[in-house]
Design a protein around this nucleic acid. Structure first.
Length: 563
DNA sequence: AAGTCTGTCAACCGCTCTGGC
DNA sequence: CGCCAGAGCGGTTGACAGACT
């Protein structure tokens, strides 16, 4: 689909340069010829290509802003660089990605996240833009379809090999060489990581219900329009054609069509917005360097040390948007993080996939496991989740006052996760990776379009079960406790309670337990819709465990790590 | 057959980071 | 330390092609 290399365009060059349909005032910031000349935008012509190639032959790559000066090309340097890098560079491979390349991309992405350029470095002849497009379309299509983002083999590979490769693989070498530090790539577990996970879990074991809609509606409609998080109930606006099993992700239409998972939007993008509708005022801390200076994300007011019995009642003053800085830790740093050198354990994954909140022991979650990338992230998350369930079951909800903002920004319920987010990049290396790995190991209840169910794909013995989320531990007595701890003087307390509870992995809105209450929050129409959709006469079921898919839970709601 | 919708791709934009001066 | 250029990235847009109604 080349816009630019038609032979007929050659003769248009001069015309293009003087009469382009898309001449602009040099949005790239450059001027031309010192006279403030306009710069052409839009598709490149073959003549322009020729000029650029000729220029590069003579002067070499780089100093792109000089191209317009020396070659007479009415293009900004940025555009020249892009054109060269993506189309004119020698040895560029054109055409569809081969199977090997696709696999490599998935593999690289599992380690690097959205580091397209660095991924491209491992794919000779491929460009970062190409890879990005590929990922955003084909790969994410899998996600939309409810397929695991990472195929089982990648998941397994991560499980079996990430530890060894972590310190020796070429990626780290590249990182070291290019940046001197081990950058995030192998260590970051951004919020989006769990987006994918939740998305997959959302289809794991139960049918989404209107509660999904309700919650989101509450957020997007009732709590602020800035969210732009439109929910389309499965039975309301169905696409004219359903090429993908979108029903697996009801209400995610808008998100998915944009190529962004709902939680990407919800968390990565909206976490810094959501608090406003909530009337929360925890400032977004733009100073990421502060975070960088704090190896473990022990921000004041954060919950990074929650495991160390630091109360979560303190409002976070840190960033609401959990944009993690690169995990630029040296190996030593990483080694000192106390990450358990757990060997890859299928059980861990299985445990997780079987029950996101299975029992386990709380570890030093603050010590991020990202030092081994996908695998540790996986294991860590699994253990974290186990711990959460354990804690939840023990109803040791206790001491923490959790504000909705905490939940929304992911800081409170899951200390570890918060921390990860804090140090992750929203674009997350391993970001989507870990999540994806989880997803890859997560059996999909829906039918796969082109892949067998993961449970089949996984090696025998993986013992992945499709366990209804309803089986997750349920807080009964604890909910009263939690509710009691809420500060209902806060306008957001009620809603927060709901979030809080779901955040604990027990999708129960403690404070929102009756249809009346829900109606109050959602409005009668929505509530009725909900009842209709769920076929329940009461709202309790809808808000109970299993009604709120993980995929619809805010990242922060992943679990509650209550001391 | 025509219209509509969706996926793909190239390109752009704005932002951030890095390194050189 | 500040400025600037280059580079990288996420997000987005628009054109186009193909599938679908």
């Amino acid at each position: 689909m080349s816009h630019s290399t038609n032979e007929s365009e050659d003769e248009l060059l001069s015309k293009d340069q003087s009469d382009s349909q898309s001449i602009d005032e040099g949005s790239c910031g450059g001027s031309f010829g010192g006279g403030g000349a306009v710069l052409k935008k839009g598709p490149w012509t073959s003549a322009e290509d020729a000029i650029l190639v000729d220029y590069v032959k003579k002067h070499g790559e780089g100093n792109w802003n000089a191209v317009q000066k020396h070659s007479g090309l009415y293009r900004c340097g940025k555009s020249c660089r892009l054109r060269w890098a993506n189309h004119l560079r020698p040895n560029l491979k054109k055409g569809a990605f081969t199977t090997d390349e696709e696999r490599l991309i998935v593999e690289l992405h599992s380690k690097m996240g959205n580091k397209w350029a660095r991924m491209a470095a491992h794919l000779p002849g491929r460009t970062d833009n190409e890879i990005k497009n590929y990922w955003n379309t084909r790969i994410k299509r899998r996600q939309r379809a409810g397929l695991p983002l990472y195929p089982p083999e990648v998941c397994m590979q991560a499980l079996t090999g990430s530890h060894q490769t972590q310190k020796t693989d070429e990626f780290n070498n590249v990182d070291t060489q290019q940046h001197g530090l081990l950058q995030a790539n192998n260590y970051e577990i951004p919020d989006v990581t769990f987006d994918s996970l939740k998305a997959n879990q959302g289809v794991l074991s139960f049918e989404p219900t209107l509660s999904d809609i309700a919650v989101s509606s509450m957020l997007s409609q009732g709590l602020g329009s800035s969210l732009n998080y439109s929910f389309i109930p499965p039975t309301m606006h169905r696409p004219k054609r359903l090429r993908e099993p979108e029903h697996l992700f009801p209400g995610f239409n808008s998100s998915f069509t944009s190529g962004v998972s709902p939680f990407d939007q919800f968390q990565s993008d909206n976490c810094d917005k959501i608090h406003r509708p909530f009337g929360l005022s925890f400032p977004y801390d733009p100073n990421r360097k502060i975070k960088k200076s704090s190896p473990f994300g022990a921000r004041s007011g954060s919950h990074a040390f929650l495991n160390g019995n630091i109360s979560t009642s303190k409002p976070i003053s840190g960033p609401v948007k959990m944009e993690l800085p690169s995990f630029q830790y040296s190996d030593i740093d990483l080694g000192s993080m106390g990450t358990s050198p757990m060997l890859p354990s299928l059980e861990s994954v299985d445990t997780f996939t079987q029950s996101p909140l299975s029992s386990g022991q709380v570890q030093s979650d603050c010590l991020s496991p990202r030092n081994s990338g996908l695998l540790d992230a996986l294991l860590h998350e699994s253990q974290t989740l186990n711990s959460a369930k354990n804690q939840s079951s023990e109803k040791s909800s206790s001491s923490s006052f959790v504000t909705p903002s905490d939940i929304m920004d992911g800081s409170t319920p899951n200390l570890c996760e918060t921390e990860w987010e804090d140090y992750g990049d929203p674009i997350s290396p391993l970001g989507r990776s870990a999540a994806s790995v989880f997803g890859a190991c997560t059996p999909i209840s829906g039918s796969s379009l082109d892949d067998p169910p993961l449970s089949e794909a996984l090696p025998a013995g993986s013992n992945v079960k499709q366990e209804p989320i309803e089986q997750i531990s349920v807080l009964d007595g604890g909910e009263k406790e939690i509710s009691a701890q809420f500060d209902f003087s806060r306008p957001d307390a009620l809603l927060g309670a709901g979030w809080l509870d779901r955040s604990s992995g027990c999708a129960k809105a403690h404070s929102i337990k009756t249809g009346d209450t829900l109606e109050t929050l959602l409005g009668e129409d929505l509530c009725n819709d909900y009842k209709y959709m769920t076929g329940t006469s009461t709202i309790n079921q809808g808000w109970g465990i299993g009604s709120i898919p993980w995929s619809n839970m805010p990242d922060a709601c992943h679990m509650s790590k209550l001391p």
